[in-house]
Computed example of a mutant assay.
Amino acid sequence: MTGRLEVLGDDGEPEEHPAPPPEPALLQLYIEQGRAVRNAYITVGRAYSEAARPVMETLARGIEAYGRALRAAGVIDRNSQ
């Protein structure tokens, strides 16, 4: 992605001036800090999914039991899923 600075000339028309390239050290710092943030998001996402797993499994078992009870009572037919 290239930055662009738009400056109006004396005639009111835009004059294009390309943005200077970032300093290599600054770019490297950005990459390193971005990597740390990305890794933190991954860690949080994994921790959340592991913490939510037992809740979701319990919920799924409850829904399945509820469906079996409704089928046994004849409220829904046996082919309903």
Rank of each mutant, 00 (worst) to 15 (best):
Met1Gln: 13
Thr2Cys: 08
Thr2Lys: 13
Thr2Met: 09
Gly3Asn: 14
Leu5Pro: 06
Glu6Leu: 07
Glu6Trp: 10
Val7Gln: 09
Val7Tyr: 09
Leu8Gly: 08
Gly12Val: 02
Gly12Ala: 01
Pro14Leu: 03
Glu15Arg: 08
Glu16Gly: 01
Glu16Leu: 12
Pro18Tyr: 03
Pro18Glu: 05
Pro20Ile: 07
Pro21Arg: 09
Glu23Ile: 00
Leu26Asp: 15
Leu29Met: 13
Tyr30Gln: 14
Ile31Gly: 04
Gln33His: 13
Gln33Asn: 15
Gln33Pro: 05
Gly34Phe: 00
Gly34Glu: 04
Ala36Leu: 12
Ala36Gly: 04
Val37Ala: 09
Val37Arg: 14
Arg38Trp: 10
Asn39Arg: 13
Asn39Tyr: 10
Ala40Thr: 09
Tyr41Asp: 13
Thr43Gln: 05
Tyr48Met: 07
Tyr48Leu: 11
Ser49Val: 12
Glu50Gln: 15
Glu50Ala: 15
Ala52Gln: 13
Arg53Lys: 10
Pro54Asp: 02
Val55Pro: 00
Met56His: 05
Thr58Ala: 08
Thr58Ser: 07
Ala60Tyr: 02
Ala60His: 04
Ala60Ile: 00
Gly62Asp: 01
Gly62Glu: 00
Glu64Ser: 06
Glu64Asn: 05
Ala65Lys: 07
Gly67Trp: 03
Arg68Asn: 10
Ala69Phe: 03
Ala69His: 06
Leu70Val: 11
Leu70Cys: 12
Leu70Gln: 14
Arg71Gln: 08
Ala73Ile: 00
Ala73Asn: 05
Gln81Leu: 09
